Amino acid sequence: MSGAYDVIVLDAESNGLAGQAFAFAAIACDAAGEMAAVTYRCPIVGPVDPWVAENVLPVIEDVEVNCENYAELCAALRQTWADWGGEVKRSRMLTHIAWPVEARLLLDAFPGRHVWKGPFPLNDVANTLTDRGFDSTSVDRYLEQQGLGKPVGNPHNPLYDVRATERAYYHLRTGRSRP
């Protein structure tokens, strides 16, 4: 689905906190809610970080490897941003705890002079959680504390994570749960 959306939410999984991303999901939302979703994954290069092997790989077994390599993963991110009107509309890109995983992926996807075509400013829901007196490290905890439903799936699956981030963000902005 293509179009120009108000908010694009991004989550990536990487091979260790400072490692290279190997999967990302993004959703495009407007006032009505989620309008489009994508998930991309490439093979992991090098030894797999033990934490990733234990906590991420089991919950993304069903996420197909649909990119041949990291360069193709970055190209998929650029194309998604373009297809969804991010550069033209200057859509708000939202993440939860963008540094270092999503920030590195975005810098690799929009290198050098192409940085101007990427999402900026990058909005991080962690800052809003902090400003409102909540734990900034967990959108799941926020959803639980507020009695809001969680998305289908599990944390560390990037599609689950973007949906949880968007639900928390929507509630923080409007005081309402997502329909």
Results as ranks from 00 to 15, higher is better:
Glu166Ala: 02
Leu17Phe: 11
Pro43Trp: 14
Glu72Val: 12
Phe120Thr: 12
Glu13Arg: 09
Thr95Cys: 13
Thr130Ile: 08
Glu64Asn: 06
Asn157Leu: 06
Val59Asn: 09
Cys29Leu: 09
Leu10Trp: 02
Pro151Arg: 14
Ala21Arg: 07
Pro155Ile: 11
Tyr5Asp: 00
Val38Phe: 13
Pro50Tyr: 03
Ala82Ile: 02
Ala23Arg: 02
Asn66Glu: 09
Trp51Met: 03
His171Val: 08
Ala18Thr: 09
Ala18Gln: 12
Tyr160Ile: 05
Lys89Glu: 11
Ala82Cys: 04
Asp49Ile: 04
Glu144Asp: 12
Leu57Thr: 07
Gln146Thr: 06
Thr80Met: 10
Leu57Pro: 09
Gly86Cys: 10
Asn66Leu: 13
Arg104Lys: 14
Ile60Glu: 05
Ala4Ser: 15
Ala12Asp: 01
Val125Pro: 00
Ala37Met: 06
Val88Glu: 14
Glu61Thr: 15
Met93Gly: 00
Cys29Met: 04
Pro111Lys: 08
Val63Arg: 10
Cys74Met: 10
His96Val: 03
Phe24His: 07
Asp140Tyr: 06
Tyr5Asn: 04
Arg78His: 08
Val9Glu: 01
Asp124Val: 08
Arg163Ser: 01
Val125Asn: 10
Val56Thr: 15
Asp131Phe: 10
Thr174Gln: 06
Thr80Gly: 05
Val48Leu: 09
Asp135Arg: 15
Val7Lys: 00
Leu77Met: 12
Leu17Thr: 13
Val38Leu: 14
Asn66Ser: 12
Trp81His: 12
Tyr70Met: 03
Gly147Thr: 12
Gln20Ile: 13
Ala103Pro: 01
Gly175Met: 15
Gly133Asn: 05
Leu10Glu: 00
Ala126His: 10
Arg167Asn: 07
Glu54His: 07
Leu17Gln: 13
Thr174Trp: 12
Asn69Lys: 08
Arg173Glu: 13
Asp49Gln: 05
Val7Met: 02
Val7Arg: 01
Trp84Asn: 02
Arg178Pro: 00
Ala32Pro: 00
Leu17Pro: 00
Gln146Glu: 14
Val162His: 08
Glu166Pro: 00
Pro121Thr: 09
Leu159Glu: 07
Pro50Ile: 04
Ser91Ala: 15
Ser177Trp: 03
Glu61Ser: 15
Asn157Ile: 04
Gly112Met: 04
Trp84Gln: 02
Val45Ser: 11
Leu10Ile: 15
Ser2Val: 08
Asn157Phe: 05
Trp116Ala: 10
Val63Met: 13
Asn157Tyr: 08
Asn123His: 15
Arg92Asp: 07
Met35Asp: 04
Leu77Glu: 10
Ala21Ile: 08
Gly3Asp: 11
Ile44Val: 15
Ala4Met: 14
Ile8Tyr: 00
Arg92Ser: 12
Gly133Met: 08
Lys89Trp: 06
Ile27Arg: 00
Asp11Phe: 05
Val162Cys: 08
Tyr169Gln: 01
His114Ile: 02
Arg104Glu: 15
Leu148Phe: 11
Leu159Cys: 01
Pro158Ser: 07
Gly16His: 03
Ser138Trp: 02
Pro111Met: 09
